[in-house]
Deep mutational scan, measured.
Amino acid sequence: MSRVPSPPPPAEMSSGPVAESWCYTQIKVVKFSYMWTINNFSFCREEMGEVIKSSTFSSGANDKLKWCLRVNPKGLDEESKDYLSLYLLLVSCPKSEVRAKFKFSILNAKGEETKAMESQRAYRFVQGKDWGFKKFIRRDFLLDEANGLLPDDKLTLFCEVSVVQDSVNISGQNTMNMVKVPECRLADELGGLWENSRFTDCCLCVAGQEFQAHKAILAARSPVFSAMFEHEMEESKKNRVEINDVEPEVFKEMMCFIYTGKAPNLDKMADDLLAAADKYALERLKVMCEDALCSNLSVENAAEILILADLHSADQLKTQAVDFINYHASDVLETSGWKSMVVSHPHLVAEAYRSLASAQCPFLGPPRKRLKQS
């Protein structure tokens, strides 16, 4: 649940008159999402009104509101027999009622949201009550392989729920002597030191190019640089560091992050930047690179990204790559990247197969709970 924001200063709310007192009302909304995959969808019983329910879910471990999704594969009634019906059901509720908006969509073979439908307002739910769409999607369109909505005969539904909580009022009075504290510009100011090479005390040599930097900042941000300058190493004695395995453009992006906490060109060089972040123990930059690479996972590059993640101990990226390969196994196994990995990294192939087997055979063990970014 997000923290209630402070109200904007009255002088910034309007260029008009300023009242002596004010009130700011925040209506709290808890948002969460749920993904439900139905394997072997074409084998569902086709009687009209037949119901399939998901397991229950909530916004978190401490949330007492429990929900589930309900599907009628062949419609709810005679009117909707040519459609799939989809509903959000409130299973248990400690209150007399709650209000919530919802959005349903289908994830296609690429994991993209399609055929989205959402409620136009927050509906009133009581325990045992459901709301949804009797005519969510035509069955003939859903079952047509050309539309790519049932890869490997799996129907994957994605649901986003927004639950309306209580409202909170914050009130106060205006004073004539309003003090406005300026925003912190530390990142910009440190970035200026790097860009202008002011007050530098060490030189970093990268592929024949020299960059002036500040030992204190490098040591504070990177345990690797800290070790170089702290001990009686040649880098500490000469205040000069030779860097041979990072390209200059990648190095500059890494230094921008060290000084400012930002990497504006990360998406263009996420793979190389991940390697640099791993070498210099820049954990936050490493996770930022993992996130960017996750966003660009595809059938063509899944094997290469899995190898990269394994090489640099990028655990979150590795998990996402394995899950992606499992979901698109029939396509990924035909790529040149996968065939190369079979020869060069057989242990990763074995890991992917083990994960695929456990996903398809849940009876082999208890269900695993899916539970950071600093």
Rank of each mutant, 00 (worst) to 15 (best):
N265C: 02
C68K: 14
V322A: 04
L308S: 09
A321C: 04
N301S: 03
C93S: 15
M178A: 06
D140W: 06
D140H: 10
D63L: 06
A281W: 11
C23R: 02
F211W: 15
S222L: 13
L88S: 01
I38C: 04
P151S: 06
A227N: 08
L150A: 11
R45W: 07
L69N: 15
A19N: 13
S355Y: 08
S295N: 04
S92A: 10
S162N: 03
C68R: 07
W194T: 06
G49L: 09
W194Y: 07
L193W: 05
I106P: 13
Q373N: 15
R240P: 05
T335Q: 15
E210V: 02
P7V: 04
I106S: 02
S374T: 14
Q173E: 02
R368N: 15
F141R: 09
I137S: 05
R139I: 08
I52G: 04
F211P: 00
R185L: 08
R99G: 06
D310E: 02
C23L: 03
R185A: 06
Q165S: 12
G261D: 04
V163P: 06
L143Q: 12
Q209F: 15
I27C: 06
N174C: 02
F32I: 13
L333S: 06
N147I: 04
M176G: 01
E230G: 10
G128S: 11
C361T: 12
Q320S: 07
S313G: 02
V287A: 04
P8G: 11
S340D: 12
F125S: 01
M254S: 04
L143F: 07
V250I: 02
N244T: 07
L317D: 00
A292D: 03
C159R: 00
L333H: 14
K318N: 13
Y259A: 01
S85K: 11
D267N: 07
T319Y: 12
G337E: 06
N62T: 11
I137Q: 12
K129P: 12
L356T: 11
Q26V: 12
F141Q: 14
A329W: 03
R221A: 13
L193N: 00
S162A: 06
S336T: 06
F133V: 05
D291R: 03
E283D: 04
S226L: 15
M13C: 05
S105L: 11
G75T: 04
A359P: 08
V342I: 11
W36V: 07
F104W: 13
R221N: 03
E249K: 04
K110R: 07
D267G: 02
I258R: 00
E46P: 11
S33Y: 10
Y87N: 00
E195W: 07
L89M: 08
P367K: 15
G148T: 08
G49S: 01
C93D: 11
F324G: 00
A276V: 05
L273F: 03
L69W: 08
S197G: 15
N239S: 01
V168W: 03
F32S: 09
C202S: 15
L76A: 11
V287L: 01
P362H: 14
A321K: 01
D201R: 00
P366F: 11
L155V: 15
E46H: 10
S96F: 10
I170Q: 02
K134A: 05
Q209M: 14
S313K: 09
A207P: 10
F125D: 01
S92P: 01
A187I: 07
L356Y: 02
S21K: 11
S171P: 04
P17M: 04
Y123G: 09
D188K: 05
E79S: 02
D271N: 04
A61M: 03
S21W: 14
F158T: 12
S21Q: 10
L371A: 13
P5G: 06
C361W: 14
C184T: 01
Y87C: 01
S21Y: 03
V91T: 13
A216N: 11
G16K: 14
D245G: 03
E230V: 15
S55G: 11
I106N: 09
V250L: 01
V250D: 06
S15L: 09
C289S: 10
M35K: 04
V29K: 07
D315N: 05
M117T: 05
M288V: 02
S59N: 03
K372P: 07
S358W: 08
F136P: 07
P182F: 03
S340G: 09
P94W: 14
E118I: 06
H312S: 07
S58K: 13
K115P: 15
Q209V: 15
W67A: 14
M13H: 09
G75R: 13
G172F: 08
K339A: 06
P182C: 03
I305N: 02
F229L: 14
E145A: 09
L293P: 00
D323N: 04
H312E: 01
S54P: 01
Q320L: 05
A329R: 10
N169R: 01
C202P: 00
M117P: 13
D63V: 02
G49C: 04
M178Q: 06
Y353K: 00
D130I: 14
S358V: 09
Y327A: 02
F251D: 00
H347W: 06
W131L: 09
T114I: 04
F363C: 14
S96T: 11
E145Y: 04
K135I: 13
I137C: 14
E47R: 12
N62S: 07
L306H: 06
P151H: 09
F363S: 11
V18G: 10
N326G: 05
G208Y: 14
A357K: 01
F211C: 12
C256W: 02
I170N: 02
E249R: 04
V164C: 09
C159S: 03
K64P: 05
E160Y: 14
G132D: 01
S55Q: 13
L142F: 03
P17Q: 04
K66P: 06
S55M: 10
G60E: 02
S96E: 12
Y83E: 14
A352L: 11
K339G: 12
C289R: 00
S226M: 15
S171C: 02
K339L: 10
F141P: 13
P366G: 15
S374I: 11
P264A: 10
S58N: 15
A321R: 00
P182D: 06
T260C: 05
T260K: 07
F102L: 12
K129I: 09
F141K: 04
V91M: 08
L274T: 09
V163C: 10
E189N: 01
S162H: 13
S162P: 08
M13D: 04
A100T: 12
S222G: 05
D272Q: 09
Y327E: 04
R124K: 02
A187P: 08
